[in-house]
Design a protein around this nucleic acid. Structure first.
Length: 842
DNA sequence: GCAAGGTC
């Protein structure tokens, strides 16, 4: 029996399909699919199935000095036990093994990890390696016809990176966390990729903070030609003889304006007409895909998550790639033909099929990892996908179209005119050949109309304007520009750059979108710059890359490279250890600044956003325990302190981050006062303990509160700002139903017969139509039943279909389901994944 | 529990 090992299940299935000519049987073993045919078996890993770590005696942060990690051993242990176990069992039964992991450095390392596991189970079995950059019949078959050997030097290069990243990251993270006494969930992290990325954001913020705006003026005139007008802008020659539009001195601007205002006409001095070719874009790699999706409003992580779902469902190719050149055996004509079956694409396909030849554009990056992102011949129908998924899918399809389409052509028209000695210019542009824009409507094609005028022609000046302006600070990095910059600096990879940004959010280093650094982030970058400059620099990666190349080429070895890196870090710690107190003090002060709201109304110290032992957030006084003043915060989301201040209390407003349900809570003291002033509105008996409730003992659930105790339901506003329908006997009876946060609630005279409660109507300024919420119990029941599975991250279109087939269509179904049972019934879904979804659904 | 890199 021959065993083939791939990097992921999806690749295993497709390779088995190709090599077996479609005749595989699937055997599920320990939660892992194994594909079998003839004398062969194929298993997919899940990336790295072993991970590096320190031995257990180094695991206690307080017992081990961070500096000791610089000399600590690093071991490898399985992180995916079930896959490792199946792999070893199959290896024991194999006569030969073929490693078919991805064709890049990390793939070589994953292959070597698999090789070592195979060796543990089978000391003698021959092991070979195949390399292909796209899973197509041609490439896969020719790779398997001519197998090669594992490249142990290339794998060692990857291992050096693993060791250096762990030692630097763990030692410095522990040091900063311990020095600031932040050792729980909120540790302070540092790393070779995250810290230079954070420095990019911090440096930009420093520029913005240091920015001093300058006044300038711009002048415009409307010129008239045959009854219609077009805008021209005043310009002059500066001291370097460059054309300039900004006037830096108000007197000069006013003088020019007086001339323009007085002048009746302008005489055309020159007319220049040029055509410019606008080439179609290159195929999508990950970074360019993220950039394009971001212009549609998708954050980087969201775009990747959708792309991964589309890939898993089989609609697009692998979304993590550096490649911008299609493989030779991609036949555009075949793929176009398949895509024409979808009505939305038919017109575009027809247009492309009219071209004399189909030649795709090529980008600058040609790599062996995977093909550029493009659609497959397996089309979804619109109903298979959510709106977002369809929008992203269409983007990928249309990008593929664009790479085959002809260039567009623009006509640029530049007119310069003289008005009593002052110069005016107008730049027109017109799209004369639509080219690829016809099939790829995501780039702007705005035209600016400037009429056909002749040299010497006299044009009337219809209006003149002077606008006072100010120079603007540099713009913050948006997520996609950050990812592009990381790529150009060589930090992170196609698979990790977007995760790095999410990590910075999670660690409390950045807030908002575009991201803005917190005071903590500023302090971390400052500390690193002063004591461990290398870890916030792109040089660290550049030097590591050079060392990795040297290892891969046999010029250096793993031990010498890691030893040298350990020594450098050891020297960093000599300086760090001396300044431990000072660094910790600065970090603690910055942490407090991020959480400070303003003066405590009781004692005047600072009110801070804090976290209780149970993990919920609240506002507490820095004077605790002397001052015990507190205010509640909403129970959903992570609080962020905004710049905006409440005029009445001088407290900063608070925003609650909760994905799509993010909202501004405002001043917590105002919210609490408002709740105190709002009276409860009683609407009927409590179904748990009111007059109609069943007597004690006859109800299954909610035993304590059950029975008639005269409880009544009321619309209540809580100090935390949320509203609900709750029992007046709270906390003895905890029965409650959710209500919307916004809008005025009207209690109508119409009653629900089933629950004996009035129907409610919500009047929100934000929407024209009032929302007929109805009986609050019926409403909540309907809401739970209606709630589909779209809101849960990680459930892709195909999985959704499969879950529906197993009878799981909404959140209630999901929460009630038995995770193990679902894993048995639904192919490719593990019990852990189901439990993860259930946690989110709840 | 720390990183970055795979993968879900």
């Amino acid at each position: 029996m021959e065993l083939i090992i791939t990097e992921k299940d999806n690749a295993a299935r497709r390779i088995a399909d190709i090599l077996s000519e479609g005749g595989t049987s699937t055997e599920r073993s320990g939660g892992v699919d194994v594909y079998q045919w003839g004398g062969r078996r194929c298993i997919g890993l899940s990336g790295h199935v072993v991970g590096v770590d320190f031995p257990p005696e180094y695991s206690d942060w307080r017992d081990v000095e961070p500096a000791e990690l610089t000399d600590a051993p690093v071991t490898k242990t399985p992180t995916q036990e079930s896959i490792v176990n199946v792999l070893k069992r199959l290896a024991g039964e194999a006569d030969s093994v073929i490693i078919a992991t991805d064709y890049d450095r990390e793939g070589e390392l994953i292959g070597k990890e698999a090789y070592e596991l195979v060796r543990e189970a089978n000391a003698d079995v021959p092991v070979s390696r195949v390399r292909f950059s796209s899973i197509t019949e041609n490439e896969v078959k020719s790779a398997f016809a001519d197998p090669d050997d594992l490249d142990f030097d290339l794998a060692a290069a990857g291992e050096a990176r693993q060791i250096i990243d762990l030692i630097w990251g763990a030692a410095l993270t522990r040091f900063l966390s311990l020095s600031a006494r932040q050792v729980g969930d909120d540790f302070i992290s540092v790393g070779r990729v995250q810290s230079p990325t954070l420095k990019l954001i911090v440096d930009k913020e420093r520029e913005i903070e240091a920015f001093d705006p300058e006044d300038y003026w711009e002048l415009f005139a409307d010129l008239e030609k045959e009854g219609s007008t077009f805008e021209a802008q005043y310009f002059y020659r500066d001291e370097d003889d460059n054309e300039a539009e900004r006037v830096w001195n108000e007197d000069d601007a006013t003088a020019a304006f007086d001339v323009l205002r007085e002048a009746a006409t302008a005489v055309v001095e020159s007319v220049r007409r040029r055509t410019r070719t606008d080439d179609p874009p290159a195929p999508f790699n990950t970074t360019q895909f993220i950039r394009a999706a971001s212009s549609l409003g998708y954050a980087a992580g969201r775009a990747m998550s959708i792309a991964e779902d589309l890939y898993t469902a089989g609609y697009i190719t692998y979304p993590r790639t550096d490649n911008t050149v299609y493989p030779d055996d991609l036949d555009p004509a075949d793929l176009l033909d398949a895509l024409s079956a979808q009505r939305d694409f038919a017109a575009s396909v027809e247009r492309l099929e009219e071209l004399d030849e189909l030649e795709a554009t090529r980008g600058d990056e040609e790599t062996t990892d995977h093909p550029p992102i493009h659609p497959t011949a397996d089309l979804p129908s619109k109903g298979d996908l959510s709106e977002d998924e369809w929008e992203v899918y269409e983007l990928v399809v249309r990008r593929f179209f664009a790479t085959l389409a002809e260039p567009a052509e623009w006509e640029h028209l530049r007119v310069v005119a003289d008005a009593e000695g002052e110069q005016l210019k107008a730049n027109g542009r017109r799209l004369v050949e639509e080219g690829y824009h016809a099939v790829y409507p995501y780039f702007g094609t705005d035209e600016n109309h400037v009429p056909d005028v002749a040299e010497g022609e006299e044009l009337a000046i219809a209006d003149a304007r002077m606008e006072a302006k100010q120079t603007q600070p540099p713009r913050r990095y948006g997520q996609s520009r950050l990812i592009e910059t990381m790529e150009s600096m060589g930090i992170g990879t196609k698979s990790t750059r977007h995760n790095v940004i999410e990590k910075l959010y999670d660690r409390g280093y950045i807030e908002n979108d575009p991201p803005r650094p917190t005071r903590l982030a500023m302090a971390v970058v400052e500390a690193a710059e002063e004591y461990a400059d290398l870890v916030v620099s792109e040089e660290m990666t550049a030097e590591l890359e050079a060392d990795m190349t040297a290892i891969a080429e046999g010029e250096k070895n793993l031990d010498s490279v890691t030893e040298e890196s350990r020594e450098i870090l050891g020297r960093v710690f000599e300086a760090l250890d001396e300044s431990r107190e000072e660094i910790g003090e600065h970090l603690r002060e910055s942490l407090k600044a991020d959480k400070r709201l303003g003066p405590c109304p009781k004692c005047g110290s600072d009110l801070l956003v804090r976290r209780s032992r149970q993990g919920s957030y609240f506002v507490g006084c820095d004077g605790y325990p002397d001052c015990r003043f507190t205010l509640p915060l909403p129970s959903t989301g992570e609080p962020v302190v905004l710049d905006a201040e409440c005029e009445e209390h001088g407290l900063n407003e608070v925003k609650m981050l909760a994905g799509r349900n993010t909202f501004v809570h405002g001043c917590p003291l105002c919210a609490a006062e408002e709740a105190a002033e709002t009276e409860d509105r009683i609407i009927g008996p409590c179904p748990e303990c009111g007059e109609n409730a069943a007597p004690e003992g006859e109800r299954g659930e909610g035993g304590d509160a059950a029975g008639a105790h005269g409880g009544e339901l009321a619309i209540r506003k809580l100090q935390s700002g949320s509203r609900l329908v709750g029992c007046t006997r709270y906390p003895d009876c905890e029965y409650s139903l959710p209500l919307p946060r916004r809008g005025d609630i009207e209690v109508t005279d119409t009653y629900c017969e089933e629950h004996d409660l009035p129907e409610l109507v919500v009047h929100d300024e934000g929407s024209d139509e009032p929302w007929e919420l109805g009986c609050p119990i019926c409403n909540y029941e309907e809401y739970r039943a209606r709630q589909g599975l779209d809101g849960i991250e990680g459930i892709g279109p195909k999985t959704k279909e499969k879950l529906a087939a197993a009878g799981i269509e909404n959140l209630d179904d999901l929460v009630d389901a038995d995770a193990e049972g679902v894993a048995e019934d639904v192919e490719g879904v593990s019990a852990e994944r189901v439990e993860d979804w259930q946690a989110k659904a709840d």
